[in-house]
Write a protein that binds this DNA or RNA. Structure first.
Length: 425
RNA sequence: GGAGAGGUGGCAGAGUGGUCGAAUGCGCCGCACUCGAAAUGCGGUUUACGGGCAACCGUAACGUGGGUUCGAAUCCCACCCUCUCCGCCA
Protein backbone atom coordinates (compact mmCIF):
# COMPACT_ATOMS: atom_id res chain seq x y z
CA UNK A 1 0.00 0.00 0.00
CA UNK A 2 1.42 3.29 -1.05
CA UNK A 3 1.01 6.61 0.69
CA UNK A 4 -1.09 8.88 -1.50
CA UNK A 5 0.57 11.89 0.14
CA UNK A 6 4.04 10.91 -1.00
CA UNK A 7 2.70 10.11 -4.49
CA UNK A 8 1.17 13.58 -4.53
CA UNK A 9 4.45 15.15 -3.44
CA UNK A 10 6.64 13.25 -5.87
CA UNK A 11 4.66 11.67 -8.71
CA UNK A 12 7.69 11.38 -10.99
CA UNK A 13 9.58 9.24 -8.48
CA UNK A 14 6.54 6.99 -8.06
CA UNK A 15 6.14 6.43 -11.79
CA UNK A 16 9.87 5.87 -12.16
CA UNK A 17 9.60 3.10 -9.54
CA UNK A 18 6.70 1.51 -11.41
CA UNK A 19 8.67 1.73 -14.65
CA UNK A 20 11.50 -0.22 -13.05
CA UNK A 21 8.94 -2.97 -12.43
CA UNK A 22 7.87 -2.74 -16.06
CA UNK A 23 4.55 -1.08 -15.18
CA UNK A 24 2.69 1.84 -16.71
CA UNK A 25 2.64 5.22 -14.94
CA UNK A 26 -0.22 5.54 -12.43
CA UNK A 27 0.52 8.69 -10.44
CA UNK A 28 -1.59 11.09 -12.48
CA UNK A 29 -4.73 8.93 -12.31
CA UNK A 30 -4.30 8.48 -8.57
CA UNK A 31 -3.70 12.17 -8.01
CA UNK A 32 -6.79 13.08 -10.05
CA UNK A 33 -8.99 10.76 -8.01
CA UNK A 34 -7.42 12.00 -4.79
CA UNK A 35 -7.88 15.65 -5.59
CA UNK A 36 -11.52 15.16 -6.53
CA UNK A 37 -11.99 13.12 -3.37
CA UNK A 38 -10.55 15.90 -1.25
CA UNK A 39 -12.67 18.59 -2.83
CA UNK A 40 -15.83 16.50 -2.42
CA UNK A 41 -14.84 15.74 1.18
CA UNK A 42 -14.25 19.40 1.94
CA UNK A 43 -17.62 20.32 0.49
CA UNK A 44 -19.32 17.55 2.44
CA UNK A 45 -17.61 18.61 5.66
CA UNK A 46 -18.78 22.19 5.21
CA UNK A 47 -22.38 20.98 4.85
CA UNK A 48 -22.03 18.78 7.90
CA UNK A 49 -20.58 21.66 9.89
CA UNK A 50 -23.59 23.83 9.09
CA UNK A 51 -25.96 20.98 9.89
CA UNK A 52 -24.27 20.32 13.23
CA UNK A 53 -24.42 23.97 14.15
CA UNK A 54 -28.15 24.20 13.38
CA UNK A 55 -28.87 20.95 15.19
CA UNK A 56 -27.21 22.30 18.29
CA UNK A 57 -29.38 25.43 18.06
CA UNK A 58 -32.47 23.22 17.77
CA UNK A 59 -31.49 21.48 20.97
CA UNK A 60 -31.08 24.80 22.75
CA UNK A 61 -34.40 26.14 21.41
CA UNK A 62 -36.18 23.02 22.62
CA UNK A 63 -34.54 23.29 26.02
CA UNK A 64 -36.00 26.79 26.21
CA UNK A 65 -39.39 25.43 25.06
CA UNK A 66 -39.28 27.65 21.98
CA UNK A 67 -41.07 25.27 19.62
CA UNK A 68 -41.56 27.85 16.87
CA UNK A 69 -37.86 28.61 16.66
CA UNK A 70 -37.01 24.91 16.71
CA UNK A 71 -39.40 24.19 13.84
CA UNK A 72 -37.98 27.02 11.78
CA UNK A 73 -34.47 25.68 12.28
CA UNK A 74 -35.61 22.16 11.40
CA UNK A 75 -36.94 23.38 8.06
CA UNK A 76 -33.67 25.14 7.41
CA UNK A 77 -31.61 22.02 8.08
CA UNK A 78 -33.96 19.89 5.98
CA UNK A 79 -33.26 22.14 2.99
CA UNK A 80 -29.55 22.10 3.73
CA UNK A 81 -29.59 18.32 3.77
CA UNK A 82 -30.88 18.00 0.21
CA UNK A 83 -27.40 17.79 -1.26
CA UNK A 84 -25.77 15.65 1.42
CA UNK A 85 -26.61 12.10 0.32
CA UNK A 86 -25.19 12.74 -3.15
CA UNK A 87 -21.98 14.14 -1.66
CA UNK A 88 -21.70 11.20 0.72
CA UNK A 89 -22.15 8.67 -2.07
CA UNK A 90 -19.61 10.44 -4.24
CA UNK A 91 -17.12 10.58 -1.39
CA UNK A 92 -17.53 6.89 -0.65
CA UNK A 93 -17.15 5.90 -4.31
CA UNK A 94 -14.05 8.00 -4.83
CA UNK A 95 -12.49 6.77 -1.64
CA UNK A 96 -13.15 3.14 -2.63
CA UNK A 97 -11.81 3.73 -6.13
CA UNK A 98 -8.60 5.21 -4.79
CA UNK A 99 -8.18 2.45 -2.24
CA UNK A 100 -8.82 -0.35 -4.77
CA UNK A 101 -6.20 1.06 -7.10
CA UNK A 102 -3.63 1.55 -4.36
CA UNK A 103 -4.13 -2.03 -3.10
CA UNK A 104 -3.41 -3.42 -6.57
CA UNK A 105 -0.08 -1.63 -7.02
CA UNK A 106 3.03 -3.59 -5.99
CA UNK A 107 5.79 -2.31 -3.76
CA UNK A 108 8.48 -0.22 -5.44
CA UNK A 109 11.99 -1.67 -5.72
CA UNK A 110 14.70 -0.35 -3.42
CA UNK A 111 17.32 1.76 -5.16
CA UNK A 112 20.06 -0.88 -5.22
CA UNK A 113 17.86 -3.57 -6.82
CA UNK A 114 19.14 -4.40 -10.31
CA UNK A 115 16.82 -3.67 -13.18
CA UNK A 116 15.58 -6.58 -15.25
CA UNK A 117 12.64 -8.30 -16.87
CA UNK A 118 12.71 -11.80 -15.38
CA UNK A 119 14.85 -14.30 -13.52
CA UNK A 120 17.47 -14.23 -16.26
CA UNK A 121 18.44 -10.77 -15.01
CA UNK A 122 18.91 -11.79 -11.38
CA UNK A 123 22.40 -11.23 -10.02
CA UNK A 124 24.31 -14.09 -8.45
CA UNK A 125 26.13 -12.76 -5.42
CA UNK A 126 27.86 -15.73 -3.87
CA UNK A 127 28.30 -19.48 -4.00
CA UNK A 128 28.88 -21.70 -1.01
CA UNK A 129 30.05 -25.32 -1.06
CA UNK A 130 31.19 -27.62 -3.81
CA UNK A 131 28.83 -30.10 -5.48
CA UNK A 132 30.07 -33.65 -4.78
CA UNK A 133 31.86 -35.40 -7.57
CA UNK A 134 30.10 -38.72 -8.02
CA UNK A 135 31.43 -41.86 -9.63
CA UNK A 136 27.92 -42.65 -10.83
CA UNK A 137 25.13 -40.79 -12.61
CA UNK A 138 23.13 -38.76 -10.06
CA UNK A 139 19.49 -39.82 -9.92
CA UNK A 140 16.31 -37.83 -9.43
CA UNK A 141 14.79 -38.12 -5.94
CA UNK A 142 11.50 -38.99 -7.64
CA UNK A 143 13.20 -42.12 -8.92
CA UNK A 144 15.08 -43.39 -5.87
CA UNK A 145 12.83 -41.75 -3.24
CA UNK A 146 9.92 -44.22 -3.39
CA UNK A 147 12.16 -47.08 -2.24
CA UNK A 148 13.04 -44.95 0.81
CA UNK A 149 9.43 -44.13 1.79
CA UNK A 150 8.45 -41.27 -0.49
CA UNK A 151 5.03 -42.37 -1.73
CA UNK A 152 3.52 -40.40 -4.59
CA UNK A 153 1.12 -43.06 -5.83
CA UNK A 154 -0.90 -43.59 -2.66
CA UNK A 155 -1.14 -39.84 -2.12
CA UNK A 156 -2.28 -39.25 -5.69
CA UNK A 157 -4.97 -41.91 -5.27
CA UNK A 158 -6.54 -40.10 -2.32
CA UNK A 159 -5.69 -36.47 -3.07
CA UNK A 160 -4.64 -36.11 -6.69
CA UNK A 161 -1.52 -34.73 -8.29
CA UNK A 162 1.02 -32.68 -6.32
CA UNK A 163 0.56 -34.59 -3.07
CA UNK A 164 2.89 -37.07 -1.42
CA UNK A 165 2.95 -39.26 1.66
CA UNK A 166 6.16 -39.73 3.59
CA UNK A 167 6.63 -43.02 5.40
CA UNK A 168 9.01 -44.51 7.90
CA UNK A 169 12.59 -43.24 7.70
CA UNK A 170 11.56 -40.63 5.12
CA UNK A 171 8.94 -39.11 7.42
CA UNK A 172 11.51 -39.19 10.22
CA UNK A 173 14.09 -37.36 8.10
CA UNK A 174 11.53 -34.71 7.15
CA UNK A 175 10.62 -34.20 10.80
CA UNK A 176 14.29 -34.08 11.78
CA UNK A 177 14.93 -31.33 9.25
CA UNK A 178 12.01 -29.27 10.51
CA UNK A 179 13.02 -29.69 14.15
CA UNK A 180 16.62 -28.82 13.42
CA UNK A 181 15.60 -25.65 11.58
CA UNK A 182 13.18 -24.55 14.28
CA UNK A 183 15.68 -25.27 17.05
CA UNK A 184 18.34 -23.26 15.24
CA UNK A 185 16.13 -20.28 14.51
CA UNK A 186 14.86 -20.10 18.09
CA UNK A 187 18.04 -21.20 19.86
CA UNK A 188 20.78 -19.32 18.07
CA UNK A 189 19.16 -16.74 15.79
CA UNK A 190 16.81 -15.05 18.23
CA UNK A 191 13.43 -15.83 16.69
CA UNK A 192 10.39 -16.42 18.92
CA UNK A 193 8.58 -19.65 18.10
CA UNK A 194 4.92 -19.23 17.19
CA UNK A 195 2.21 -21.76 16.51
CA UNK A 196 -0.21 -19.66 14.47
CA UNK A 197 -3.60 -20.11 12.79
CA UNK A 198 -3.49 -21.76 9.37
CA UNK A 199 -6.92 -20.46 8.34
CA UNK A 200 -7.28 -16.71 7.99
CA UNK A 201 -9.76 -14.10 6.88
CA UNK A 202 -9.59 -11.81 3.85
CA UNK A 203 -8.14 -8.90 5.81
CA UNK A 204 -5.07 -10.85 6.86
CA UNK A 205 -4.23 -11.67 3.25
CA UNK A 206 -4.90 -8.12 2.13
CA UNK A 207 -2.46 -7.09 4.83
CA UNK A 208 0.42 -9.15 3.49
CA UNK A 209 -0.52 -8.53 -0.16
CA UNK A 210 -1.84 -11.90 -1.44
CA UNK A 211 -5.25 -10.28 -1.80
CA UNK A 212 -6.94 -8.72 -3.65
CA UNK A 213 -4.82 -9.68 -6.70
CA UNK A 214 -3.78 -13.30 -6.17
CA UNK A 215 -6.85 -15.14 -4.93
CA UNK A 216 -6.44 -17.82 -7.61
CA UNK A 217 -3.21 -19.00 -5.96
CA UNK A 218 -5.00 -19.78 -2.71
CA UNK A 219 -7.34 -22.44 -1.32
CA UNK A 220 -10.59 -21.16 0.17
CA UNK A 221 -12.70 -22.89 2.83
CA UNK A 222 -16.45 -23.33 2.61
CA UNK A 223 -16.99 -20.75 5.36
CA UNK A 224 -15.06 -18.09 3.46
CA UNK A 225 -11.66 -18.40 5.11
CA UNK A 226 -8.37 -19.12 3.35
CA UNK A 227 -5.62 -21.68 3.94
CA UNK A 228 -2.35 -19.82 4.40
CA UNK A 229 0.08 -20.11 1.47
CA UNK A 230 2.92 -19.28 3.87
CA UNK A 231 3.28 -18.55 7.59
CA UNK A 232 4.40 -15.06 6.55
CA UNK A 233 0.67 -14.26 6.56
CA UNK A 234 0.01 -15.45 10.10
CA UNK A 235 3.25 -14.16 11.61
CA UNK A 236 3.16 -10.70 10.06
CA UNK A 237 -0.49 -10.23 10.99
CA UNK A 238 0.41 -10.74 14.65
CA UNK A 239 1.13 -7.00 14.74
CA UNK A 240 -1.80 -5.82 12.62
CA UNK A 241 -3.67 -2.79 13.94
CA UNK A 242 -1.32 -2.57 16.88
CA UNK A 243 1.29 -0.10 18.11
CA UNK A 244 4.65 -1.48 19.28
CA UNK A 245 6.99 0.22 21.74
CA UNK A 246 10.26 1.12 20.06
CA UNK A 247 12.16 -0.64 22.83
CA UNK A 248 10.55 -3.96 21.85
CA UNK A 249 11.95 -3.81 18.31
CA UNK A 250 13.06 -5.74 16.42
CA UNK A 251 10.52 -8.52 16.93
CA UNK A 252 11.50 -11.81 15.35
CA UNK A 253 9.00 -14.62 14.78
CA UNK A 254 9.43 -18.12 13.43
CA UNK A 255 6.93 -20.89 12.82
CA UNK A 256 6.86 -24.37 11.37
CA UNK A 257 3.62 -24.70 9.42
CA UNK A 258 2.08 -26.42 6.48
CA UNK A 259 1.60 -24.13 3.48
CA UNK A 260 -1.14 -24.55 0.89
CA UNK A 261 -0.90 -23.35 -2.69
CA UNK A 262 -3.19 -24.01 -5.61
CA UNK A 263 -0.30 -23.67 -8.10
CA UNK A 264 -2.91 -22.41 -10.54
CA UNK A 265 -0.35 -20.63 -12.67
CA UNK A 266 2.22 -23.40 -12.83
CA UNK A 267 0.44 -26.20 -14.66
CA UNK A 268 2.99 -28.59 -16.09
CA UNK A 269 5.93 -27.21 -14.10
CA UNK A 270 7.75 -29.53 -11.71
CA UNK A 271 4.96 -32.07 -11.90
CA UNK A 272 7.35 -34.88 -11.02
CA UNK A 273 8.79 -35.22 -7.56
CA UNK A 274 8.48 -33.35 -4.30
CA UNK A 275 9.57 -29.90 -5.51
CA UNK A 276 6.18 -28.31 -6.10
CA UNK A 277 3.33 -29.61 -3.96
CA UNK A 278 -0.10 -28.24 -3.05
CA UNK A 279 0.83 -28.79 0.59
CA UNK A 280 4.31 -28.46 2.04
CA UNK A 281 5.99 -27.55 5.29
CA UNK A 282 8.14 -24.53 5.84
CA UNK A 283 9.95 -22.87 8.70
CA UNK A 284 9.18 -19.22 8.17
CA UNK A 285 11.07 -16.21 9.54
CA UNK A 286 9.43 -12.82 10.04
CA UNK A 287 10.97 -9.65 11.43
CA UNK A 288 9.09 -6.57 12.57
CA UNK A 289 11.29 -3.52 13.07
CA UNK A 290 11.85 0.22 12.82
CA UNK A 291 12.73 1.62 9.38
CA UNK A 292 16.38 2.20 10.27
CA UNK A 293 16.74 -1.44 11.36
CA UNK A 294 15.36 -3.21 8.32
CA UNK A 295 18.58 -3.42 6.30
CA UNK A 296 20.34 -5.04 9.24
CA UNK A 297 17.40 -7.37 9.86
CA UNK A 298 17.50 -8.38 6.22
CA UNK A 299 21.15 -9.34 6.58
CA UNK A 300 20.47 -11.21 9.81
CA UNK A 301 17.60 -13.14 8.24
CA UNK A 302 19.75 -14.02 5.28
CA UNK A 303 22.48 -15.32 7.57
CA UNK A 304 19.88 -17.26 9.58
CA UNK A 305 18.68 -19.06 6.45
CA UNK A 306 22.15 -19.62 5.00
CA UNK A 307 23.29 -21.08 8.30
CA UNK A 308 20.86 -23.98 7.86
CA UNK A 309 22.19 -24.83 4.40
CA UNK A 310 25.76 -24.63 5.66
CA UNK A 311 25.05 -26.82 8.66
CA UNK A 312 23.52 -29.41 6.32
CA UNK A 313 26.54 -29.04 4.03
CA UNK A 314 24.34 -28.35 1.01
CA UNK A 315 25.93 -26.36 -1.83
CA UNK A 316 23.94 -23.25 -2.65
CA UNK A 317 24.15 -19.82 -4.19
CA UNK A 318 22.73 -16.46 -3.19
CA UNK A 319 20.93 -14.41 -5.82
CA UNK A 320 19.72 -10.82 -5.68
CA UNK A 321 16.42 -10.67 -7.54
CA UNK A 322 15.99 -8.08 -10.26
CA UNK A 323 13.05 -5.69 -10.37
CA UNK A 324 11.06 -7.92 -12.72
CA UNK A 325 11.31 -11.10 -10.62
CA UNK A 326 10.39 -9.72 -7.20
CA UNK A 327 7.15 -10.57 -5.44
CA UNK A 328 4.27 -8.12 -5.05
CA UNK A 329 5.07 -6.89 -1.54
CA UNK A 330 8.86 -6.85 -1.67
CA UNK A 331 11.16 -3.93 -2.22
CA UNK A 332 14.29 -6.08 -2.16
CA UNK A 333 14.62 -9.86 -2.24
CA UNK A 334 17.41 -12.41 -2.00
CA UNK A 335 16.82 -15.97 -3.11
CA UNK A 336 18.86 -18.89 -1.85
CA UNK A 337 19.13 -21.66 -4.39
CA UNK A 338 20.31 -25.14 -3.45
CA UNK A 339 22.25 -27.47 -5.70
CA UNK A 340 20.23 -30.36 -7.16
CA UNK A 341 22.57 -32.83 -8.88
CA UNK A 342 19.82 -34.57 -10.88
CA UNK A 343 18.85 -31.26 -12.48
CA UNK A 344 22.47 -30.10 -12.63
CA UNK A 345 21.35 -26.69 -11.42
CA UNK A 346 20.44 -24.56 -8.41
CA UNK A 347 16.77 -24.46 -7.31
CA UNK A 348 15.07 -21.92 -5.03
CA UNK A 349 14.86 -23.06 -1.42
CA UNK A 350 14.41 -19.73 0.34
CA UNK A 351 13.24 -16.24 -0.59
CA UNK A 352 14.08 -13.44 1.80
CA UNK A 353 12.38 -10.10 1.36
CA UNK A 354 12.39 -6.67 2.91
CA UNK A 355 8.91 -5.21 2.44
CA UNK A 356 9.66 -1.81 3.96
CA UNK A 357 6.43 -0.26 5.27
CA UNK A 358 4.32 -1.69 2.41
CA UNK A 359 2.61 -4.41 4.45
CA UNK A 360 2.55 -2.32 7.63
CA UNK A 361 0.48 0.32 5.86
CA UNK A 362 -1.95 -2.30 4.58
CA UNK A 363 -2.46 -3.67 8.09
CA UNK A 364 -1.99 -0.43 10.01
CA UNK A 365 0.93 -1.78 12.06
CA UNK A 366 2.86 0.97 13.80
CA UNK A 367 5.40 1.75 16.50
CA UNK A 368 5.87 4.71 18.78
CA UNK A 369 9.30 6.31 18.36
CA UNK A 370 10.84 7.31 21.68
CA UNK A 371 10.91 11.04 22.28
CA UNK A 372 8.48 11.73 19.45
CA UNK A 373 4.79 12.29 19.53
CA UNK A 374 2.67 10.18 17.26
CA UNK A 375 3.37 6.88 15.56
CA UNK A 376 5.14 5.60 12.45
CA UNK A 377 4.68 2.56 10.28
CA UNK A 378 6.86 -0.46 10.98
CA UNK A 379 9.00 -2.28 8.47
CA UNK A 380 8.33 -5.98 7.87
CA UNK A 381 10.55 -8.72 6.49
CA UNK A 382 9.98 -12.36 5.75
CA UNK A 383 11.97 -15.32 4.54
CA UNK A 384 12.08 -19.09 4.53
CA UNK A 385 14.39 -20.65 7.01
CA UNK A 386 13.90 -23.05 5.13
CA UNK A 387 11.29 -24.77 2.97
CA UNK A 388 11.37 -28.20 4.59
CA UNK A 389 10.13 -30.20 1.58
CA UNK A 390 12.69 -28.79 -0.79
CA UNK A 391 15.41 -29.20 1.79
CA UNK A 392 14.45 -32.87 2.04
CA UNK A 393 14.86 -33.16 -1.73
CA UNK A 394 18.27 -31.51 -1.52
CA UNK A 395 19.43 -33.79 1.30
CA UNK A 396 18.26 -36.85 -0.62
CA UNK A 397 19.85 -35.88 -3.90
CA UNK A 398 23.11 -34.53 -2.52
CA UNK A 399 23.48 -37.41 -0.08
CA UNK A 400 22.59 -40.21 -2.50
CA UNK A 401 24.90 -43.17 -3.01
CA UNK A 402 25.31 -45.63 -5.84
CA UNK A 403 23.21 -48.30 -4.07
CA UNK A 404 20.20 -45.98 -3.67
CA UNK A 405 20.80 -45.24 -0.01
CA UNK A 406 21.17 -41.72 1.45
CA UNK A 407 23.59 -40.54 4.11
CA UNK A 408 21.94 -38.52 6.88
CA UNK A 409 23.77 -35.20 7.53
CA UNK A 410 25.64 -35.13 10.86
CA UNK A 411 23.59 -32.31 12.41
CA UNK A 412 20.39 -34.32 11.95
CA UNK A 413 21.68 -37.47 13.71
CA UNK A 414 20.44 -36.38 17.16
CA UNK A 415 16.96 -36.17 15.69
CA UNK A 416 17.06 -39.47 13.81
CA UNK A 417 16.85 -42.03 16.60
CA UNK A 418 19.98 -43.80 15.50
CA UNK A 419 19.35 -43.84 11.75
CA UNK A 420 22.52 -42.76 9.94
CA UNK A 421 21.67 -43.97 6.46
CA UNK A 422 18.32 -44.24 4.70
CA UNK A 423 18.28 -47.65 3.08
CA UNK A 424 16.05 -48.92 0.27
CA UNK A 425 13.64 -51.68 1.10
C1' G B 1 -25.40 -26.57 17.85
C1' G B 2 -29.10 -24.23 21.85
C1' A B 3 -29.88 -20.16 25.60
C1' G B 4 -28.19 -15.65 27.72
C1' A B 5 -24.85 -11.31 28.82
C1' G B 6 -21.62 -7.84 26.88
C1' G B 7 -17.99 -4.73 23.56
C1' U B 8 -17.03 3.17 25.64
C1' G B 9 -10.20 6.80 25.96
C1' G B 10 -3.40 3.54 27.99
C1' C B 11 -6.46 0.72 32.02
C1' A B 12 -10.97 0.45 35.14
C1' G B 13 -15.67 2.41 34.54
C1' A B 14 -20.23 6.12 34.17
C1' G B 15 -23.37 7.69 30.48
C1' U B 16 -30.44 5.04 27.39
C1' G B 17 -31.92 10.97 21.93
C1' G B 18 -29.45 17.40 22.26
C1' U B 19 -24.86 21.92 25.17
C1' C B 20 -21.04 14.34 25.23
C1' G B 21 -14.73 13.43 22.28
C1' A B 22 -17.39 11.69 26.39
C1' A B 23 -18.10 12.01 34.17
C1' U B 24 -14.99 9.76 37.82
C1' G B 25 -10.75 6.91 39.42
C1' C B 26 -5.95 4.89 38.10
C1' G B 27 -1.77 5.62 34.98
C1' C B 28 1.29 9.18 32.32
C1' C B 29 3.49 14.46 31.53
C1' G B 30 4.38 19.44 33.56
C1' C B 31 4.30 22.85 37.68
C1' A B 32 3.99 23.98 43.05
C1' C B 33 5.30 22.38 48.03
C1' U B 34 10.24 19.54 49.72
C1' C B 35 17.33 19.31 51.08
C1' G B 36 15.43 15.09 48.04
C1' A B 37 11.52 11.54 47.70
C1' A B 38 6.64 10.12 49.15
C1' A B 39 2.06 12.27 50.11
C1' U B 40 -0.76 16.50 48.63
C1' G B 41 -2.46 20.51 45.36
C1' C B 42 -2.94 22.78 40.37
C1' G B 43 -2.80 22.17 35.11
C1' G B 44 -2.35 18.96 30.99
C1' U B 45 -2.87 14.08 28.63
C1' U B 46 -6.83 10.00 21.89
C1' U B 47 -6.40 9.33 16.77
C1' A B 48 -7.13 10.09 11.51
C1' C B 49 -8.31 13.36 7.61
C1' G B 50 -9.21 18.32 5.40
C1' G B 51 -8.27 23.77 5.40
C1' G B 52 -4.53 27.59 7.06
C1' C B 53 2.39 30.55 6.81
C1' A B 54 0.77 30.10 11.74
C1' A B 55 -2.21 30.68 16.14
C1' C B 56 -6.09 27.82 14.98
C1' C B 57 -10.64 26.03 12.55
C1' G B 58 -13.60 22.04 10.62
C1' U B 59 -14.99 16.76 9.84
C1' A B 60 -14.93 11.76 11.49
C1' A B 61 -14.25 7.92 15.26
C1' C B 62 -17.91 4.94 21.80
C1' G B 63 -16.46 -3.30 18.15
C1' U B 64 -17.50 -2.98 12.27
C1' G B 65 -20.98 -1.64 8.42
C1' G B 66 -25.82 0.11 7.18
C1' G B 67 -30.52 2.61 8.76
C1' U B 68 -34.13 5.96 11.59
C1' U B 69 -33.87 11.30 13.17
C1' C B 70 -33.19 18.28 12.52
C1' G B 71 -29.65 15.70 15.88
C1' A B 72 -27.21 8.86 17.71
C1' A B 73 -22.29 6.30 22.44
C1' U B 74 -27.78 6.14 23.38
C1' C B 75 -33.11 3.63 18.93
C1' C B 76 -33.39 -0.31 14.62
C1' C B 77 -30.88 -4.12 11.23
C1' A B 78 -26.67 -7.13 9.76
C1' C B 79 -21.88 -8.78 10.81
C1' C B 80 -17.33 -9.46 13.98
C1' C B 81 -15.43 -10.48 18.74
C1' U B 82 -15.56 -11.70 24.18
C1' C B 83 -17.84 -14.05 28.41
C1' U B 84 -21.49 -17.56 31.08
C1' C B 85 -24.60 -22.00 31.05
C1' C B 86 -26.18 -26.52 28.29
C1' G B 87 -24.94 -30.10 24.37
C1' C B 88 -20.99 -32.23 21.44
C1' C B 89 -15.81 -32.92 20.99
C1' A B 90 -9.27 -33.73 19.98
Amino acid sequence: MHDIKSIRENPAAFDAGLARRGLEPAAQTLIDIDSELRSVATEMQASLARRNEASKAIGQAMAQKDAAKADALKAEVAALKEGLPALETRERDLSAALNDRLLAIPNLPFEDVPEGADEADNVEQARWGEPRTLDFEPRDHADFGPALGLDFEAAAAMSGARFAALRGQMARLHRALAQFMLDTQTGTNGYEEVNPPLLVRDEALVGTGQLPKFAEDLFRTTDGRWLIPTAEVSLTNLVREAIQAQGDLPIRFTALTPCFRSEAGSAGRDTRGFIRQHQFEKVELVAICAPDQSEAEHAHMLASAEGILQALNLPYRRVLLCTGDMGFGARKTFDLEVWLPSQNTYREISSISNCGDFQARRMNARYRPEGEKGTRFLHTLNGSGLAVGRTLVAVLENGQQADGSVVVPDVLRPYMGGIEVLTPR
